[in-house]
Write a protein that binds this DNA or RNA. Structure first.
Lengths: 239, 239
DNA sequence: CGACATATTGATCGACTTCAAGTGTAGTGG
DNA sequence: CCACTACACTTGAAGTCGATCAATATGTCG
């Protein structure tokens, strides 16, 4: 199977054959991580970055009050901790939401890219920049919108991202997470996640069975969410 | 005056003399921006990035419901839209909170750095990565903590950042913004900002006169905020 | 002074939390 | 095949934090 990082980067710009060859070579080895297990912990100083080959992962921060906030959700083809190459110390942990297969990329390989392949290097750092754009969107939703619209927004974003890597069918995708976990993404209590979900269901917007989500009315869901996909940068252009 | 970007980058790693020379040369010209004016708008495709030489700036997003969320606050030495070099299209606007002096850095100069100065290039992208870390912290506070503690956290962060560029006295700094603006940073209504501020004052934690903030009890303020400065990456190490 | 923005205060409302109990449903071991 | 357990989901009731609405102060700047 080809490296899904190629798939990821090609969403944003074209890659030369040589660049693809480089990307094929950077995964030193692969590993699996069990559901519920941390693949990186806060405070770690990783010597390698992890590329998600299969499964869902979440980055999260714990507060001293015991609460957890998931700051991003990752899918096939995402680097979950590329930024650690620059930041050196993890400011958060990364959790496997489902069983995951990951590719291990030594920081040495990344360094070599930054030394020898400027264009590829920009594309990698673009990933970090997009991460930031997604964070800003989440922050905006968290600070200034209702639970309903935030929830709807999460579903819109996730659907487009999954679709872009061929992991979503026509308005339907797999999302095997608990409502508890959704709460930690949205900054809501489990109870309120449940109630909000019921509102969305009652409105004929989505169907959910705990594993998969069906977006029943994509247009209205986007309206509900005030969703504008621009921030995902799913546009191919020279960078 | 030396380019404050040097000051900024030197917080995270050492710079060679040549690198400093390069940084001195990248500002094509400077400009001033009036208080309350946007220096970049959402949807723009900037051909240059702006380095804040003086003043406070905020990046913000507007929602369709008319609400505004400020996603980050910028001070002397910060690139306010470095990521635009990679993202191409602005996903948010940047506002001058005070009169600002800015240095204009053509994207051509940035490109040259990525082609010819790998180490410097990493340090620039580190800035984007730190930006992300700050976003994550804000998101976590927005999703999972009280107004009090969020407010306290903002003050802690701001104080350390200002101190690191020599813009804060001993537990005192200048912050000429309205409570309205603070609300847009914290995701709170103006009224509640006011009340929360009064709580902090009553608790003997801060004093504020609308222009400057005095942190009266740094220890307790950090506790209130659950503040841990690690995410700011104010540590010099090879990157 | 007059005008306008900003800060403050009071009263009410509502979204979301918390606590607590009840209802699946899948897995385990007898 | 059926009890037993565990975990997720669901529902109800009560409480709280912060929003909203509406005045009233307090600047501050021409």
């Amino acid at each position: 199977m080809t490296n899904p990082l190629i798939l990821n980067l090609e969403q944003h710009d074209r890659l030369s054959e040589e660049e693809k060859r480089v990307l094929e070579s950077i995964i030193a080895h692969t590993r699996t991580v069990n559901q519920g297990e941390d693949m990186v912990r806060e405070g770690d100083r990783p010597k390698e970055s992890l590329l998600l080959l299969e499964g869902f992962a979440a980055r999260y921060k714990m507060l001293l009050n015991g609460k957890r906030q998931i700051t991003s959700l990752h899918i096939m083809g995402d680097f979950v901790d590329l930024h650690a190459y620059l930041l050196k110390v993890m400011d958060h942990a990364v959790l496997a939401l489902t069983p995951c297969r990951i590719g291990v990329v030594p920081h040495g390989a990344l360094r070599q890219i930054t030394e020898q392949h400027p264009h590829l290097s920009r594309l990698l750092f673009l990933n970090i920049a997009i991460d930031g754009a997604v964070h800003r969107q989440w922050l905006t939703m968290a600070g200034r919108s209702s639970a309903r619209s935030r929830f709807a927004h999460l579903l819109c974003e996730l659907f487009l991202r999954l679709k872009s890597v061929g992991q979503a069918a026509e308005h339907h995708f797999h999302l095997p997470v608990t409502q508890q976990t959704l709460g930690d993404m949205l900054g809501l209590s489990t109870v309120h996640v449940n109630r909000t979900l019921q509102e969305l269901r009652a409105g004929g917007l989505v169907a959910w069975n705990g594993r998969g989500i069906q977006l029943l009315d994509w247009e209205r869901l986007q309206q509900e969410a005030h969703f504008d996909p621009a921030y995902l940068n799913l546009i191919k252009e020279p960078r």
